[in-house]
Amino acid sequence: MIRLDDTDRAFLRALAEDATLSAGALGRRFGLSQPAAWRRVKRLHDEGVIRGRRLDLDHEALGFGVTVFLGVKLAAKGRVSLEDFERAVRAIPEVQLVHHVLGLYDYRLRVVARDLADFERILRRRIMTLPGAGEVEANVLLSEERRPGPI
């Protein structure tokens, strides 16, 4: 585990809010020169603390008004490999996240759809036909609130 000081944590909080901040902007905000800020950010990248930058899209604005969290239990009879299931589920463009979890279900999926009829089509034609797919539980997202992480 990498040691983080207060400035590292402040950088991470700022970048979590706006990943486009330049080293110069970070330096000005936290009282460092641009090269010193750049070295800190580079170290955080090199150490694996920062794994990349992501674009946060508004799904509703793009026509995807429904988000569903699925719990998927693999069928015991087929003895399908986890890799086969994961490879197949990653090929479904509407599946945003795939989490292999411990608990009642083997996987938790985040799925986006245009509407409930579109979600039903995705569920019937894509999710339920996955290799090894057994029991499925769906939870439709009503609202979402982002909470800052532990940094």
Rank of each mutant, 00 (worst) to 15 (best):
I2P: 07
R3I: 03
L4F: 10
D5A: 09
T7G: 00
D8E: 08
A10P: 07
L12C: 08
A14W: 08
A14D: 08
L15M: 09
E17A: 15
D18K: 07
T20K: 15
L21M: 12
L26E: 05
F30C: 01
L32A: 13
L32R: 12
S33V: 04
W38C: 01
L44N: 02
L44E: 00
V49I: 15
I50A: 01
R53E: 11
R53S: 15
L55T: 07
D56P: 03
D58R: 08
L62V: 03
G65T: 15
T67S: 10
T67R: 08
V68W: 02
G71Y: 00
L74E: 01
A75P: 04
D84F: 02
F85P: 00
E86Y: 11
A88P: 09
R90L: 14
E94W: 03
E94S: 05
L97D: 07
L97C: 00
L97Q: 10
V98F: 03
H100C: 04
H100Y: 12
H100P: 05
L104G: 06
Y105I: 02
R108T: 13
L109H: 03
V112G: 02
A113S: 14
A113K: 01
L116K: 15
L116E: 15
L116Y: 15
D118F: 10
R121A: 13
I127T: 07
L130P: 10
G132P: 02
G132E: 08
G132N: 05
E135P: 04
E135T: 11
V136P: 07
V140S: 07
S143M: 09
E145V: 06
P148I: 08
P148N: 11
G149I: 06
G149D: 12
